[in-house]
Design a protein around this nucleic acid. Sequence first.
DNA 1: ATTATTTCCTACCTCTGCGCTAGGGATGTA
DNA 2: TACATCCCTAGCGCAGAGGTAGGAAATAAT
Lengths: 143, 143
Amino acid sequence: MLISTKGRYALRVMIDLAEHQSDEFISLKGIAQRQEISEKYLESIIRMLVKAKVLDSLRGKGGGYRLKKSPDHYTVYSILSLTEDSLAPVACLEENASGCSRAGNCRTFKLWQGLDKVIHDYLESVTIADLMEQGAAGDDYVI
Amino acid sequence: MLISTKGRYALRVMIDLAEHQSDEFISLKGIAQRQEISEKYLESIIRMLVKAKVLDSLRGKGGGYRLKKSPDHYTVYSILSLTEDSLAPVACLEENASGCSRAGNCRTFKLWQGLDKVIHDYLESVTIADLMEQGAAGDDYVI
DNA sequence: ATTATTTCCTACCTCTGCGCTAGGGATGTA
DNA sequence: TACATCCCTAGCGCAGAGGTAGGAAATAAT
């Protein structure tokens, strides 16, 4: 499993906010109900998005969340990289690579690099706007 | 993590056998030593390859394993699909999909299908022969 | 026939991380 | 000042990854 529920939920939050865009803030409660996700769990996910300054937040009555920029400013990759510890398809490519001693004459290293690039490029090519109800201009991000 | 050590090891076994191809059988011990993998663990992985009829095996003295067909007959995908329970990047796409009730108006389903396809196509485009020491004709499987 | 070698089979163990729950504290708006 | 909402920490159950252990069955060489 490359992408956890955390990442998928984060994406759904972004889309939900994009589709309900306005000057007002949108409450956690509303998002949770529409998306059928536990409030408490969703809370922890949204907090990541706020910390990463992808969302504006406002506390108190009438508070909630709001996209900071327009939906086409956010690629799928940029969102997933906030919630997923790693999007690397194999352990060799993770941050703490610590390089295996065999890396030098490893027959498969280039293969994994290539796979990583393919995944990255695809996720980078789709924006939140592309995922909204009507789809965006292109609508051809599916191969 | 999309691809576990089991899958990576299986691939290395296939490459090792491809590079030491001959009429004779190659022992588990030899592979394990060259690849620096525990014999016992490797055993369980190789058994999957035998069961799937990708390898021939022979017991007793002088026994071991051997590729059934030539290295260019095996794509990376065909090997990984033997050891990995699922190569789906998200839970929604797994065998026991049991389809979430939201699938109908899910904004992200096509995204995941597209990602799955990109991964599948890439892994299907590379063969064991491509991964051998000198690389094969193409040698351009890295994007 | 016996022995050494090698594959086949079953069971089990530990550790990590995902997915989620719980309870409360802080802060701002009406 | 009351209440809606965000912020923070802790913990729990489960599944799967990664690996270990011990022996049974088959085969070749002696």
